[in-house]
Structures are given as C-alpha cells and as structure tokens.
Design a binder for these strands. Structure first.
Length: 380
DNA sequence: ATGTAC
C-alpha cells in the first residue's frame, strides 16, 4: 500500500509502486515534455516507457497550446471489446486457429456495402486509406479471443453483457496510414511546435484528428466484424476507448494529451497485459491527480531491437506460438513474434495494483488470453 | 506506429 502517485519534478508525477519497473529514460522524457511551453502538468502511468522523443503511457495537460507531435502518428489508437456467442466449454484451439482465417488483406467486395453505410453513419469520409479498414497493422496491435478467468464485480461484468460462458474479443488497433499522414503533413508544415489554441492551424488539425478518431473506431469495428464472421458467430461491441488523442480536459480548463493513456471518465475499460498475460476489465474512477487517465497496457520492458537476440537462442518460433497461460499465437512474422513476446513486457499485475492502490480503479474481472491474432504473414 | 526509409 502507500502513496502510488509521486512527484518526479515541479510539473511531472508518476503513478507507480516502489517495485514498478520504469526506465529512467522514460522519466527524463516525461519531465522534459512537461517543460514544453504551455504544458502545465504531466502524469506518467505505471506502463510508462520511452518513445521517440516523448514517453508512452502518459497524459499531458496544456493551456494555450496543443502539441500534435505529442499525440503521435497513431491518432485514435484504442481498445475495443466485443462479446461473442462462442461457448467457452466448446473451444477447440486447433479448429479456432484455422477458423479465424486471414484478415491481413483489404476487405473484399462483399463488405463494401456495409463499409459505405458505416462510413456514412460515423461521418468517416471515403479515401485512399479505406483499404486499411478491417486490418490490424503492425507493432503492438492485435486482436485476441479471451475468456473470463476471475470475476470480482459480477454485476458490473453483466452490465457490459460479458459472461463467463462466452469468449470475448479484444481489438487493439488505430487509424493506420490516415493518422500517420495527418501527423506527417502537419509536422512538414509546422514542425514540432505547439499550435495556438483557436488558430486556423489548430482548427485544421483538430478537425483532421477527430476524423482520425472516428476512422480508428471504424477500423476496430471492421476487424471485429470480420473475425466474428470468420468464426461464424455473432457479437456486439461492449466497449471502445481511444488512448491516443488530444481533447478538452473534462475536469478543468486546458487540453489533455493522451499518449498511450486510457481515459478514466468513460466508465469501464479493458487494460491488457502482453499476449502471455492477463487483461483486466476495470471500473475507472475519475481523478484530477491522474489527469483522469489510466495505463493503456503493461508497457515494454525490452526495446524491440534487443528482443530477437535475447529470445532466439532460447526458444524456437514454434515454442513461442504457445504461451504460459495456455494461449495460442497467430503471427507469421518472425520479427514480430520476438518483438511482442511476453518476456519483452512488464507484468500486468504490478501495473493494475499500482492503479488500484492509487485509488484510480476498481477491478471488475480478469481475462485469460485464448488466441492472439497478429498477422498470417507469409505463412498463409 | 506507418500501403515506413534505408
């Protein structure tokens, strides 16, 4: 127990336990970013880790300026949870693995009518990045079938229509090439400087950013619809929460930048561990000390470039397709197999207990990974 | 992170 929110500088604080592993480089990035012009406060979450210039797993409150470069290229990246009608007791992993199919290619002609309809519903403009809709992308993005492992608040679990009897589907992806294009075009024109709130450039960015949020939500929706269709089951979206964005601060004035930080004002959220670890459905408690934010996952422990050397001598790719919790992994990319290995990530239990002890969450249920989809890669 | 840039 004890105080899990501590100041690390005049404007920066950290949600972590004494035994939460956080690299000093990440804390230095947090402090440096908190000193940008107009930034008032920065809060690192327990999954804080170093990024390119700015740390990942943090929220930043600014006044007078916003920083598009701080949101990054994957505008609207987030977590969606869908229910399914797949009975847990009927699971056959070999069959499930085959049935899940391949969703690496653009959606086919048979999907286009629904794509047009959902684009209209969500005011997502058709464009060159439509071919990315319904695809996961790379890096830490994934889709995962999970089962309930432990229930702490049954009535809350029932409130989102999830049950111990059926698998659920977690989708982590973002705005793909669209968000990347928005950031690149923005940086080409304005560099990494802050934008004056109210300026033409500000309005232009916010409009494109908000469109990318809707595109990212639609992408996660089609990833889920496509997998449910392959599995010949039905399901509904029960949660969809963005963790890369900038928006007006709900608990005060200014703008909050979420760089891999889950909002705490939308009720329940899913916080996943690595593919070999649990995910937690939690009820968020809005709190100003945390800038109304939570961790978005568990955070890297190893840099991507170091993973293969550490793991390839110890494990074959075939061995890595099975995880300690009994899950399976579909990942045709050798590089990704190593880069996203459970060993490369921190323990989710520590991240969750840090937030719990800081009074930021109540734990609803724990989920166990069953089948993780990354990419079929070249192996069909 | 990215129908990447090297």
């Amino acid at each position: 127990m004890g105080n899990c929110i501590q100041n690390v500088s005049a404007r920066a604080s950290l949600v972590a336990r004494g035994d939460t592993w956080i690299e000093s480089d990440a804390i230095q990035q947090l402090i440096k970013t908190s000193e940008l012009s107009g930034v008032i406060r920065a809060v690192g979450m327990p999954d804080l880790h170093p990024g390119r210039g700015y740390p990942i797993g943090a929220a930043f409150l600014s006044e007078g300026y916003i920083y598009p470069a701080l949101v990054g290229n994957d505008i609207g990246c987030g977590m969606a949870v869908w229910s399914t009608d797949l009975a847990v007791h009927k699971i056959k992993l070999d069959k499930l693995e085959k049935q899940l199919g391949n969703i690496d290619q653009p959606l086919g002609d048979d999907w286009q009518e629904m794509v047009r309809k959902r684009q209209q519903d969500k005011q997502v403009m058709p464009g060159v990045f439509d071919s990315a809709l319904g695809t996961i992308g790379g890096g830490n993005h994934f889709a995962e079938l999970q089962m309930v492992d432990e229930v702490y608040m049954p009535e809350q679990l029932a409130a989102v229509n999830l049950s111990v009897k059926h698998l659920c589907l977690l989708v982590h992806s973002g705005s793909r090439g669209l968000g990347e294009q928005i950031l690149r075009q923005h940086v080409d024109k304005y560099s990494h400087k802050g934008l004056d709130v109210g300026s033409d450039a500000f309005h232009e960015y916010v409009e494109r950013h908000n469109h990318a949020l809707r595109f990212a939500e639609l992408n996660r929706e089609f990833i889920a619809r496509r997998l449910l269709s392959n599995l010949k089951t039905r399901g509904e979206m029960v949660l969809d929460v963005n963790h890369n964005l900038v928006e007006p601060y709900s608990l005060g004035s200014g703008w909050v930048h979420r760089k891999g930080a889950t909002p705490a004002e939308q009720g329940m959220v899913m916080i996943p561990g690595s593919r070999g670890d649990y995910s937690y459905l939690v009820q968020a408690r809005p709190s100003d000390t945390s800038l109304c934010s939570l961790a978005h996952g568990t955070g890297r422990k190893w840099i991507r470039s170091g993973c293969k050397a550490r793991l390839s001598c110890k494990y074959t790719v075939e061995q890595m397709k099975r995880t300690e919790l009994g899950g399976r992994v579909i990942c045709g990319s050798r590089e990704l197999m190593y880069e996203e290995a459970p060993q490369a990530y921190k323990s989710i239990d520590n991240v969750i207990s840090a937030m719990s002890e800081a009074g930021l969450i109540d734990i609803v249920a724990r989920f166990r990974p069953v089948l993780t989809y990354k990419t079929r890669g070249t192996q069909g």
